[in-house]
Design a protein around this nucleic acid. Structure first.
Lengths: 193, 193
DNA sequence: GACAAAAAATGATACTCATCATATTCTGGA
DNA sequence: TCCAGAATATGATGAGTATCATTTTTTGTC
C-alpha cells in the first residue's frame, strides 16, 4: 500500500468536517461538491473516491455535526450542574444563535433534511431519537420515565424552535426573545410541584 | 387598457399561490421559476412581468403562506375557546405535520429563509413579530404583558420546533412525540399557580 | 372588423451543479 | 532508481438554473 495507511481516512474526515460546517452555514443545496473539496484542499473530481454520492455525504455530515455541536455546546456550560435546564440554557444562547456553522444541525438544516433522500431522513430520525434520549437522561431518574420523556420532548422542541426563530429575527430583538425562551423553560421545568 | 382590469392581478395571485405551496412542499431552492409558472398555467418567460426577481417572490410568498396557514390551522379548532393552548394544540397536530404545503412556512422554510436575500429576511422578521403578537393576544389581558410575551415566545418556539422535529421522525414515533409536546405545553401554560 | 396596447410565449444566454471516465501524481518497497 | 498501485487531478457530459430580449397572442375600443 504505497500510501500512509491512514491517509485516505484523514482526507475523508477533512471533507466531512468541511461539509458539516459549510452545510450548516449555507444549507445543503447551496453548497456544491466542488466547493467542499476546495475547502478540504482538494479538487472536485476526487470526491467520488470517498463518497458514493452527495446524499451519502449529507447523511454522514449530519451525524458528524451532531457530535460536533454537542461538544461545542458543552463548552458553554462548564461546571454547571448539567441538568436539562442548564443544557437548554446553553443551547438557547446568543453564541449559538449567531454561529450556526458550529451549532445544532437540526436547527440549521432540519426542514431541508426532511426533504432529502431516504438515507438522509434515516440518519436524521436516528439522531433526533438519540438527542431525545440524551436529554431525558439529564433529568433525575427518580422522576417517572414517562414524565422525563415528555419534558425532553417539550424542551428540545422549544430549543430547536427558539434558535430558528431567533435567527429569523433582527438583531435588537434577538436577545430578549432568547431570554423569554429560557425563562419559559425555567418555569416549565421547575423541579417543584 | 385592452385587458380586464383585474386580469394581471389575478394571474399574479395564481403565481403567488403556487409559490406558497410549492416552496413549503419542496423548499425555495428546489423549486424553479419555470415550474412555478407551469403550476400557474403559464410559461417561464412571463415571470418577470409580475416580479422583479425570485427573491421578491419569496418574500411575498412568505407573507401569503403565513396568512394561508393561519386560516388552515384555524379550521382545526372550530368552536374551541381559542386560547393560546388551543392554538398550540391545533398547530401541533398530525394533520399539520403531514401537510407542510398547507402549514406554517416558518416550520417548513425557517432556516432556509434566514439564509436568503435581505428582502426575504426582512419579511421573515416581520412575520415572526406579527405571529408573536397574535399569540400573546390569545392570553387573557389580566395577565401582565411581560408574562404574556414570555408565554407566547415559549409556546411559538415549542410549536415550530415540535413540528420540525416531528417531520424529521419516522412514522410510528410521530404521534407520541406530538402528544408529548402538547402535554408539555398544557402544563407549562396552565392558568393555575 | 381593424388597431393599439397589454399580457404571455419563445428562445437564448451564461451559469452552476452532480457525476463519471480518464489521466496524472504521489508514495512505500524492491 | 524504478515500479505498482493508491490517491488525486483533469476534463467532459448533461441537466437544470435565473434572467432578459424579442416575438406572438389576446383583448377592449374605435
Amino acid at each position: 500500500m504505497p500510501w500512509p495507511k491512514e491517509h485516505k481516512t484523514q482526507t475523508r474526515d477533512r471533507v466531512l468536517d468541511a461539509a458539516a460546517s459549510a452545510f450548516r452555514e449555507a444549507g445543503v443545496t447551496q453548497v456544491g461538491v466542488g466547493e467542499l473539496m476546495r475547502r478540504a484542499g482538494l479538487t472536485h473530481g476526487g470526491f467520488y473516491a470517498h463518497f458514493n454520492s452527495k446524499d451519502e455525504l449529507i447523511a454522514e455530515a449530519l451525524a458528524y455535526a451532531m457530535e460536533d455541536s454537542r461538544t461545542n455546546l458543552d463548552r458553554l456550560q462548564v461546571g454547571a450542574a448539567k441538568g436539562l435546564l442548564e443544557a437548554a440554557n446553553a443551547y438557547l444562547s446568543s453564541e449559538h444563535a449567531s454561529h450556526p456553522e458550529m451549532g445544532c444541525p437540526i436547527a440549521a438544516l432540519g426542514p431541508e433534511l426532511t426533504r432529502g433522500a431516504p438515507s438522509v431522513r434515516q440518519s436524521l430520525s436516528r439522531e433526533i431519537r438519540k438527542r431525545l434520549d440524551q436529554l431525558a437522561d439529564l433529568i433525575p431518574h427518580r422522576i417517572s420515565a414517562q414524565r422525563r420523556r415528555r419534558e425532553a420532548a417539550g424542551a428540545l422542541a422549544c430549543m430547536v424552535g427558539g434558535i430558528i426563530l431567533t435567527r429569523g429575527m433582527k438583531q435588537p430583538e434577538r436577545a430578549g426573545f432568547l431570554a423569554d425562551c429560557r425563562a419559559f423553560l425555567a418555569e416549565a421545568l421547575a423541579p417543584a410541584e
